[in-house]
Amino acid sequence: MSLAEGNELREVNETDLVDVGGAMAKWEHFPASAILHHGKPCCRVAREWIFSTDYSQLNGENPLTGPRWLRLKYKWGASVWPISWCEAVRQKTLDCGALASMANEVFVMRGVKSYPAQFIQQYTEEATRHWRESWTDGNASDHWIKDDLIYHEGCAVVVREGEIRLWDASAGWWMNPKQFGGYGGLVALRVFAPQAEFSWGAHRIAPGRWQRIQNERQGLALASAG
């Protein structure tokens, strides 16, 4: 009984709108965000503070632990670019690019290999409309929104030779390598790394180019058919 009900569920989020190809084209030449260094004491203090605080926050745990404290200190919101270290550390809100860039440096400082990662995620048009309005109100660019898709940034953290995990510095969590599409789902990924290829869960990731992330639900349907 209950199982049969599940089969009839209509997926409200499964619209025809998801234009992943268009989104990948839109953000094809988008560089990963990088925070500027003034080359002066102002930025030096800021960076020392970040790294020493991170070490304290890590509390002796494994260096692969996500630096969630950054997100606790900085609310996710609009940032005005370009931004320098001395400016960034004094903000109340930082956008995903600034948070990802900070987290990336923190991982590297800990001796962990970490690379900038770009995500295209699916939400809903209701969600993206609100974001667009908030960002425009704050004089920040809304270039990161396309229909119900958004551009987002994080870190590709090498956990073992050839294997990465994706840290979403704005959410403070690791992305699930099993993607089912739908709200919050990762539909495309680009990692900037010198390596040839990585595995992320069951996915093979080739650095330097946008690539679609396969939906697990197809796998499930196949299993049940077989």
Binding site: P41, R44, V45, E48, W49, F51, S52, Y55, S56
Partner: peptide, 12 residues
Amino acid sequence: SMLRWCRSIETL
């Protein structure tokens, strides 16, 4: 962690 803070302070 204190050693790191000390080093930061010394550097800065």
